[in-house]
Design a protein around this nucleic acid. Structure first.
Lengths: 197, 197
DNA sequence: TTTACTGTACCGTCTGGACGGTATTGTCAA
DNA sequence: TTGACAATACCGTCCAGACGGTACAGTAAA
């Protein structure tokens, strides 16, 4: 019977939530961040509108979850890459560079949810703002030269924002060139930190 | 005095158009980029809805004008600052830095219209995308080192995108530090170009 | 007379979300 | 073990209101 599949209640819900979140990002990308309707999301997610509202009681809750989803994803990656117990722990800057690369290589508009949230109410981006500030502080504190760290941060910020808007301004070669250059910078920082330790 | 200025028909219209464009940006900022309604814009601009639709027959036309308005502003500034006949002609990079500084110093969300256009339909940003690509090519061609130019471009892109989203990530000091650093870079480029000429 | 509007009334469509229902699973006393 | 009840995870329908856009009559300046 179906019962043999260990699909317990929680897993069911979690699955639905993720499906809905992914669907919301897709719809946002396709119909414009400001035209995200619950009906469209529900349909795309293969869920009824009632089911959608069950998981996210209001549209605002959905938007918040969309931002949080992105943040959690980052936080997990960052923790994993910089884990001092791992074989090759990275510095925060190295991890950030890697994450930015992945961000740009992801299917276009994977983070369109962020835009949808912003379109609805700019305050939904407040957690993202605080997150970025904390990240920047960490990058500055780990670097030889805080200004360089700041510049690196902004370069990546520029790159990812172009990507977020799906503005194909940079070629792949240009992107790669920049990432390699930043990686060198990060490597130098790392060696410096190791030497002075 | 003011009456002596022949406020002709065109000027009247132009005035209305600018008032509407400014109002649209304000409304976009206040109610979220995706919640820009024609009624709200008309009210804010002190224009009837009929008058709004007289100037911009459809919402799409308004959005396009919003983007074009920003682009024209930039183009005019750029032409003025880099005019070889002026006393102190700047390089494109120097002008771009200056423009980015002004962008960040403007009243918050002066360019929210861009976000509103994007929220409605991402394709409205196509002209902006092409514009950025042309700018980047110009910066690269004028610089000693194309990669450095690209990095400078991205730093400014990151700075202005944070500003566009009204994410107060950078302090004023940090912004100034970055701007000064970029200005030095641009100055070095300029001297190099002058020496090799 | 033309231009550049104002003001009002209206229409069709879409949207968030409230609501009532239902099937499945979990709990727990008898 | 079972039967009553409750919680979970949805489905499908409905509706008041908002929105973009149209139509049209009026007006004030050039």
């Amino acid at each position: 019977m179906l019962a043999q599949i260990g699909r317990n209640v929680t897993a069911r819900r979690t699955n639905s939530r993720e499906k809905i979140l992914a669907a919301a990002a897709e719809v946002s990308r396709e119909s414009g961040a400001g035209n995200l309707s619950l009906d469209a999301v529900a349909q795309r997610a293969g869920v009824s509108k009632g089911g959608l509202l069950y998981n996210f009681p209001t549209k605002a809750k959905l938007m918040q979850a969309l931002v949080q989803y992105y943040l959690d994803d980052y936080e997990v990656s960052m923790a994993r890459e910089t884990d001092p117990n791992s074989a090759m722990p990275k510095t925060a800057l190295q991890a950030h560079i890697e994450f930015s690369r992945e961000f740009c290589e992801k299917p276009p508009g994977a983070a369109s949810g962020i835009l949808a949230a912003m379109a609805d109410d700019p305050h939904f981006l407040d957690p993202l703002c605080q997150f970025k500030r904390r990240l920047l502080d960490r990058l500055k504190s780990e670097a030889r030269d805080p200004l360089r760290a700041l510049m690196c941060f902004l370069v990546l910020e520029g790159m990812t924002s172009l990507d977020l808007f799906e503005m194909d301004v940079l070629s792949n070669e240009e992107r790669e060139l920049v990432l390699v250059r930043l990686a060198e910078e990060a490597e130098a920082d790392k060696n410096h930190a190791a030497a002075s330790a």
